[in-house]
Design a protein around this nucleic acid. Structure first.
Lengths: 251, 251
DNA sequence: CGCACACTTGAGTAATGTCAAAGAGTGTGG
DNA sequence: CCACACTCTTTGACATTACTCAAGTGTGCG
């Protein structure tokens, strides 16, 4: 349960205090860049940001807009995307709790971001970044680590998009989702697949029809099972063989 | 002229002094992460690394090897690539003087690197990184900036690979090369194209044949001229229209 | 209950890949 | 200096993967 959401739902007399407890109980903290913050600094750190809830389907960050803030995801799934002028879309990543978002070198955002599910975010003003580095030792290093890791993931995705077949792409995505949701420890085998076929297609450089057909084949060969918004990977071995070098993940 | 090369060619009595001057005269310094080093710290900074010359065609860094060092390119062109188990190759980037190379979050390199032309590098031991952060303020920030910029470039490349046509991909690459070599101020209009069609194909997610055909078309329509290892962009306007949202560059 | 919307499935097409061969550029040794 | 060998590039003919267009089938929500 996102603490941020409960705060938003129950305004309190002393919001600063409420915020001061927010980080301490945040389930996403161990993953993200907040992991760099020592326990005794947590309440102080809580004051550096505000939390924010986004409803599913809402685009809350637009490519090209001034990059005034950056975010961490504390709850839900986010997709990042870029558009070509004729409307073609590329999804550059799916984000889950703990992931960083909107951190840019330039003064504009490099991508747009949309909530796939209801999402909770922590929102940091970029202007305070230098001060945060000074106030919280290890924060800049953690940021560097996360961005470097993201870059490595992006390079894996380039291999996927440039050289893998449709089947390999799908297998890679599924394995990547397992690995990432697995570390958050969900119920056995079944993992969430909150994004639409269109989102997946835009992420894998395919069409929805092709994604659907590939999933049907994987289902038929017993590699995976699909039900509702979930997938179960029945034969991870076979899937890994298909994916070659494991998934094009992000983060 | 790479100073590193001249040092290698002329061993001196006091190599430390020779190194101490190396950075001061380095033409790549303004671009790369060495740009963070103040003039008065330069000779001290020179001692943190060694220089190294690589002959064309040599793979000097292998994906999966222990990431003991990282590098900056001071002269020449490098390609980064990743392989699938059956030999399919994806080139994830071309590097030029000033670019960073081999910086990894994990303890292994994320890609292989090969010298496209004769290359000169500066080689930094990764173990000293924390000490370097302490000794040279601003270095970590510069690193973060560069990696963030690379990530943005990687995301552009994902759009290219996932959603652009062969013609658009080629146009994007050419524009990106212009922009990057332009800032180094070469002779008017003509830019170096040191990589082979195969390298380009592996970078654009195409085959050599397709790259060749696309170049022929672009030549025929008057957009570009090809001669020897060089290209001249005659109609940057038309090329930019084709590329949509400008190039899938790195860095 | 019925309208959206997402997903699946089918039939035909198009962009790009594959296979093959010829042309162009470059370096080597006679 | 030329002939040969090698690699890179271009071009052609054909094959194939994935896309496009088009129904049709769920599935959730008002």
């Amino acid at each position: 349960m996102p603490l941020a959401a409960s705060i938003a739902a129950h305004p309190v007399a002393f919001p600063v205090i409420a915020q001061a407890n927010a980080c301490k109980n945040c389930s996403a903290r161990p993953q993200g860049f907040c992991a760099a913050i020592k326990a005794e600094s947590l309440s102080r750190f809580s004051l550096t940001h505000t939390s924010q809830d986004i409803e599913a389907g809402k685009t809350f960050l637009n490519e090209g807009d001034p990059a005034t803030h950056f975010f961490t995801v504390t709850e839900g799934t986010v997709k990042l995307f870029k558009l070509l002028s004729d409307g073609r879309r590329a999804v550059t990543g799916f984000l889950f709790p703990g992931d960083l978002l909107g951190f840019s070198d330039a003064d504009k955002y490099n991508y747009s971001a949309e909530a796939v599910t209801p999402v909770s975010l922590c929102r940091f003003p970029r202007r305070q970044l230098d001060r945060m580095y000074a106030d919280f030792p290890g924060l800049e290093s953690q940021l560097l680590k996360l961005v470097t890791r993201e870059l490595a993931a992006a390079q894996n995705q380039m291999v996927l998009l440039g050289r893998k077949t449709a089947h390999e792409r799908a297998a890679s995505l599924l394995l990547s989702l397992i690995r990432r949701q697995g570390r958050s420890g969900r119920n056995a085998g079944w993992i969430e697949l909150p994004m639409t076929r269109t989102d997946i297609a835009d992420y894998l450089g395919l069409t929805t029809e092709t994604v659907s057909r590939v999933f049907t084949v994987l289902k038929g060969s017993g590699c995976i099972a699909l039900a509702g918004g979930k997938v179960r990977v029945a034969d991870a071995e076979a899937l890994a063989d298909l994916a070659d070098g494991i998934g094009g993940d992000d983060e």
